[in-house]
């Protein structure tokens, strides 16, 4: 490889990184990290703390008499939907459901999938082959199709939606965890630990897991968007969070029925979905770039 010419790569980096735009570029880099981080924090606070501190009307059980109130109506800043429920309240409660499901799915993915991947990769051999082939079967399914099938078996509810979504988060994380483990397993310090008589379990928990964790967390961050979108799709199809409980997906579905008359009923939850997914994606990309040392 480049024995004497390590500088060639550097020599070709476009120059505007070094021009007078440097300061602006640095500010922009910082904004790109802090804006999504702030936005995610805001969303979490709004959806999880909001219901307790904001004077929100109930998201369900509204009166038909109040149906279709326009935004700006007293007590209903974003108006009401066809059932007379407060849209803002439904957005926040729906967001809470979406985020709860997304976080739970990712935690399950991390713990179960990460565990399976790490053990499988670390043990290697037959066990590894069998586990990975089994996961291949699950990974082959398009995520929405798989979750629809499982949601049908389990029936619509929040915990069941989480389980259904986990059917694709677990194998996906397991694959990443396995390849990360394989990389780590050949490193000298792991071999040193093994030689010094550390048990397999101990090596796994003390050395392998801490080393693959950052990569897993980063993958989970990028996975948040995917889970939120798929959950929305499931609820949109009436197979996720059962109405009348709000979720962004079923709000979009309800709004769709009066799309031409009150497009805002679709736009609000769509916007909420967009901002949330965008924030998580940006955050995830930044962490990834940071970790790959860019």
């Amino acid at each position: 490889m480049a024995i004497a010419d390590a500088s060639i790569g550097a020599a070709l980096v476009p120059s505007d990184a070094v021009s007078r735009n440097e300061r602006w570029a640095r500010i922009r880099r910082r904004l790109v990290v802090w804006v999504p981080a702030g936005s995610v924090t805001f969303l979490l606070l709004l959806c999880f703390v909001g219901p307790f501190v904001l004077p929100l009307p109930s998201p369900i059980g509204g009166s038909v008499l109040d149906s279709g109130l326009p935004p700006g109506t007293a007590g209903h800043p974003l108006g009401t939907d066809v059932n007379g429920n407060d849209v803002l309240s439904r957005l926040i409660y729906g967001g809470r459901a979406s985020l709860t499901i997304a976080i739970a799915t990712n935690v399950i993915g991390l713990v179960v999938g990460g565990g399976i991947g790490a053990v499988s990769g670390f043990l290697g051999g037959k066990a590894d082959t069998v586990i990975m082939r089994a996961l291949d079967v699950l990974i082959a399914f398009p995520s929405l199709v798989l979750t629809i099938a499982i949601a049908q078996i389990l029936g619509p509810s929040v915990p069941n939606t989480i389980l259904a979504l986990s059917a694709f988060s677990v194998p996906a994380v397991a694959r990443i965890a396995r390849s990360a483990t394989l990389k780590i397993a050949n490193m000298p310090f792991i071999q040193a630990a093994e030689l010094s008589g550390s048990t397999t379990w101990r090596t796994l928990t003390r050395h392998v897991v801490p080393n693959i964790t950052p990569q897993m967390l980063n993958f989970a961050l990028l996975g948040m968007g995917i889970v939120i979108v798929t959950e929305g799709a499931l609820s949109f199809l009436g197979m996720g969070i059962p109405a009348p409980a709000p979720s962004w997906g079923n709000m979009i579905f309800e709004g769709q029925q009066s799309l031409s008359a009150t497009p805002l009923l679709v736009l609000w939850p769509s916007l909420a979905l967009l901002v949330t997914v965008l924030s998580f994606n940006m955050l995830g990309e930044n962490v990834r770039d940071e970790m790959s040392g860019r």
């Binding site: 500088s7 980096v13 070094v18």
Partner: peptide, 20 residues
């Protein structure tokens, strides 16, 4: 030695250096 400027000096002749 590596880094003594050999490559840069000839790349300069060919216009193969970055704009910086």
């Amino acid at each position: 030695e590596s880094g003594s400027g050999k490559s840069v000096s000839v790349r300069a002749l060919m216009g193969l250096l970055p704009p910086s």
